[in-house]
């Protein structure tokens, strides 16, 4: 099979953005420590400078946007000082978790009553909410809320480390299967109760069923948005090192499987060989050499998907002026 010429053509980050005029949801994924948050920041700054109304949102349980921007953006979308058209928002997951716990409590209590089971809801709630997936699904719900509210032209998400992000997005497919099954069982249980019931009065409102149906609709909508290559792009960040490359390789395979559109690969923290003096320590020269080897591997593996190669900065990237500088290089 031959690949169409258009996918062979190597697009820069700017070229890619220009080729997707309706692009709306931008994500950054990769191994921990590769600079996802900083790149999300730079991308958001760059897109805002190009005139889009942009929301930079963090769904991480541990946020770092405020630290990066030197500005408190926790709890509500906050205009970023020094960049027009840009808002930043660290979502309070605790709030969502408390709310979901309350909802789950109500549902469990209702269900115990419905099924005539003696027992206290608390034990079930503890089990349901201590699950690590619970925090993830709270993050996912938060993300969907922001996407559905549709108040900005573009959204840049600083996503959780790789495995979580994949599960979050994969979840929508799994959820759909699971919810369909649940809806079916609920229908059967309801029919059974109707037949066995002495009083032939209509079954009352079923909050579990309402919830499941509503949930299914949300997931279907999410899937529609997240799998539309004109609207969504997921960028993978790597360093010229073995493990981050291995992670995004796996990640790219998963995403292709789920049909989630991949925007491309960004290589971060490349040491500028010219800045290293010949007398510098062996240690430094070896690192430069190692990076050169891995750059070749990246070229071989991802070739036309590489959108940008960014230098290792002399200091931590913090504050709007540095983000603007990085944005300039990202969109060069």
């Amino acid at each position: 099979m031959t690949t169409p010429a258009t996918t062979q053509e190597r697009l820069s980050m700017q070229g890619f953005i220009d080729s997707k005029p309706r692009l709306k949801f931008v994500f950054f994924g990769g191994k921990g420590g590769v600079g996802k948050t900083v790149l999300a920041g730079a991308a958001a700054v760059g897109l805002a400078q190009q005139g889009k109304r942009v929301l930079l949102a963090s769904t991480n349980p541990v946020h770092s946007l405020s630290g990066m921007l030197n500005q408190d953006v926790f709890g509500k979308p906050t205009p970023v000082e020094g960049v027009e058209n840009l808002w930043a928002y660290e979502i309070d997951t605790k709030d969502t978790i408390e709310r979901s716990k309350q909802e789950i409590r109500e549902k469990i209590e209702w269900f115990l009553k419905f099924a005539d089971i003696k027992g206290r809801a608390d034990e079930f709630i503890e089990t349901a909410t201590m699950n690590p997936a619970f925090e993830e699904s709270a993050m996912f719900e938060n993300m969907l809320d922001i996407m559905f509210r549709d108040e900005y032209e573009m959204y840049v998400f600083d996503t959780a480390p790789t495995a979580n992000a994949r599960r979050l997005l994969g979840m929508s497919s799994v959820y759909a299967l699971w919810v369909n099954k649940m809806v079916q069982s609920r229908e059967e249980a309801k029919q059974m109760r109707l037949q066995l019931s002495f009083s032939k009065k209509e079954e009352e409102k079923d909050p579990l069923m309402d919830y499941l149906i509503n949930f299914r609709q949300r997931m279907e909508r999410a899937k529609e948005l997240l799998t539309d290559p004109e609207l969504t792009a997921f960028f993978f960040v790597t360093l010229p090192e073995a493990l981050p490359i291995a992670v995004i390789r796996r990640f790219i395979n998963w995403f292709e499987e789920f049909g989630i559109p991949i925007g491309g690969v960004i290589v971060n923290m490349r040491i500028d060989a010219e800045s290293v003096s010949a007398e510098a320590d062996e240690f430094v020269h070896n690192r430069v050499k190692m990076q050169a080897e891995y750059m070749e591997e990246i070229e071989k593996l991802f070739g036309p998907m590489v959108r940008s190669v960014l230098p290792l900065y002399e200091t931590e990237v913090r504050g709007v002026p540095m983000l603007k500088r990085l944005a300039g290089q990202l969109f060069a």
């Binding site: 800045s275 003096s277 320590d281 430094v284 290792l312 002399e314």
Partner: peptide, 16 residues
């Protein structure tokens, strides 16, 4: 390592 970061010809990024 300290001796590498503080050696005379260490690049700035490393020292920072």
């Amino acid at each position: 390592p300290k001796e590498i970061a503080l050696s005379e010809h260490a690049p700035n990024y490393l020292r920072n």
